[in-house]
């Protein structure tokens, strides 16, 4: 079974899904990520789905579950690069991915995490 590699950049884990995953592959990724968050003590997880052609309810659920798990482990999950056609289809399907933060691309996803970290460190009231 093909496994999706998990990259570590500072205290952020980055996953880029590049292949059409089987359901077991999706579940394996979910477990691998939870393990990796605990092991590395990462503060953020970025899942890049810019190469993913469809997101069905199974993958949708995986994304929501990863977000919930990492929140419990004090890490924030950001899903980046969802294609317009995929987003339209997900809305039609009835999946809103509540609780999952999103960004247009990897760069903006990283910026979103940095913003949050800065806010934590400085905590300047506005």
């Amino acid at each position: 079974m093909e496994r999706v590699p998990i990259l570590k950049l500072g205290d952020v884990l980055i996953v880029s899904i590049q292949i059409d995953l089987q359901d077991q592959g999706v579940l394996a990724l979910q477990e691998d990520l939870a393990d990796a968050v605990v092991e590395s003590g990462a503060r953020g997880v970025i899942i890049d789905i810019s190469a993913v052609e469809i997101v069905d309810s199974f993958i949708g659920r995986m994304l929501a579950t990863i977000a919930s798990i990492s929140r419990v482990l004090d890490a924030e999950t950001i899903v980046v690069g969802m294609r317009p056609a995929v987003a339209i289809t997900l809305v039609e399907l009835g999946l809103s991915l509540g609780g999952v933060r999103t960004a247009l691309n990897l760069e903006k996803g990283v910026a979103l995490l940095e913003d949050r970290d800065n806010a934590r460190a400085v905590a300047v009231p506005r």
Binding site: F58, A85, I88, T89, E92, L93
Partner: peptide, 16 residues
């Protein structure tokens, strides 16, 4: 493209 994505997603759900 959008309709392709929709029908492929439906196929994925139904096949599963």
């Amino acid at each position: 493209l959008v309709d392709q994505t929709k029908v492929v997603t439906a196929a994925s759900e139904l096949a599963r």
